[in-house]
């Protein structure tokens, strides 16, 4: 018993030697700051003053009473819905198309499709600000040339179009990632399944629905979870392109948090928003994982 136990301890210590460096860094640079943020959310602090005033739950009350928070949250939900729909599904379609036998230059397509995803958001925002510019932007010009002038719009300046305009730019960045992941999953699909399906006389649509789709289900779950978390965190593209305007029409929680903490110097309130955001992400991820697990089991 004792020998066994000692051996187990030895094993544990050895394993810990591998894990500890990563774990310690993770605790110091991720976990402790989170705990500090939660702590800070119970204080009123302007970031400058030496006095931090304990206010209990007042910051949270203020957030939930503020219409901008709810507006920002609704924009996050919009972003989640459409990010799961547009770039994710489009990325999957592209991957399925690319993995067909007859497609040539597969490498070229694959490399280029992922390129928007690797470019800095600063660059992306410059590019898209120019494309969407109402006066000299190429998008409106293209729409006018092909006779769809009625759809030309003041993309980033109009409360009705701004979220869609941002979404276009966001999707441009994101679909490459979805494609790469799906492609990876498809290459894992055993080619013999396909052959069997063909021999059984299934047409391509049937093959796709009955063979490829179920295999893609896990990938879709992964991508959707990724989009869900990513959409809650979305910051840079909004901050760089509209700063949440016009009149909060594109405000998301993270830009609201940034503005509260760093522009208005309400660090306690900002920390409370950050805490709420983290809790929301954790809850949504947990629910999503539960649901998708149940589906897989069934």
């Amino acid at each position: 018993m004792t020998v066994k136990r000692r051996r187990a301890i030895g094993k544990w210590c050895k394993a810990m030697l591998f894990v500890a460096p990563a774990l310690i860094c993770y605790i110091v640079f991720a976990i402790i700051p989170i705990i500090n943020t939660i702590e800070l959310s119970f204080y009123k602090w302007d970031g400058a003053s030496p006095i931090m005033e304990y206010v209990g739950l007042a910051n949270y009350k203020e957030i939930f009473a503020n219409p901008i928070f709810w507006k920002a949250l609704s924009h996050n939900l919009f972003w989640i819905t459409f990010t799961i729909m547009i770039p994710t599904i489009f990325g999957i379609i592209l991957a399925v198309m690319l993995s067909q036998r007859f497609v040539r230059f597969r490498l070229l397509f694959r490399v280029v499709f992922y390129m928007p995803a690797i470019v800095s958001m600063v660059a992306v925002s410059v590019i898209w600000n120019w494309i969407l510019n109402p006066e000299f932007g190429i998008l409106n010009r293209i729409l006018k040339t092909i006779g769809l002038g009625v759809f030309a719009a003041d993309w980033l300046g109009n409360e009705k179009t701004v979220m869609f305009a941002l979404l276009i730019a966001g999707s441009w960045v994101h679909y490459g990632f979805c494609m790469v992941i799906t492609l990876a999953a498809l290459s894992g699909v055993d080619a013999s399944y396909m052959e069997v399906a063909k021999l059984e006389g299934a047409n391509p649509v049937q093959t796709f629905v009955y063979v490829t789709m179920p295999l893609l289900k896990n990938t879709f779950t992964l991508l959707a979870l990724n989009s869900l978390i990513g959409s809650f965190k979305v910051f840079e593209i909004v901050y760089m392109m509209t700063k949440g305007g016009p009149y909060n029409s594109s405000e998301v929680i993270s830009t609201y948090m940034y503005r509260t903490a760093f522009t208005n110097s309400e660090f306690g309130l900002g920390s409370a928003i950050a805490t709420v955001l983290s809790v929301l992400i954790a809850i949504c991820s947990a629910i999503y994982m539960k649901v998708s697990e149940r589906e897989v089991d069934a």
Binding site: A22, L23, Y26, V28, F29, A30, I31, I32, P33, I34, N36, T37, L40, I229, F232, K233, F235, S254, M257, Y258, A261, F267, G270, S271, A274, T275, L277, S278, I281, A282, S285
Partner: peptide, 20 residues
């Protein structure tokens, strides 16, 4: 416990991180 970190946005850590 480590995977938990994937869900937390950097914005939620940045103020204390600065002081650290």
């Amino acid at each position: 416990f480590m995977m938990f970190g994937m869900m937390i946005p950097i914005q939620a850590m940045v103020i204390p991180l600065y002081y650290n």
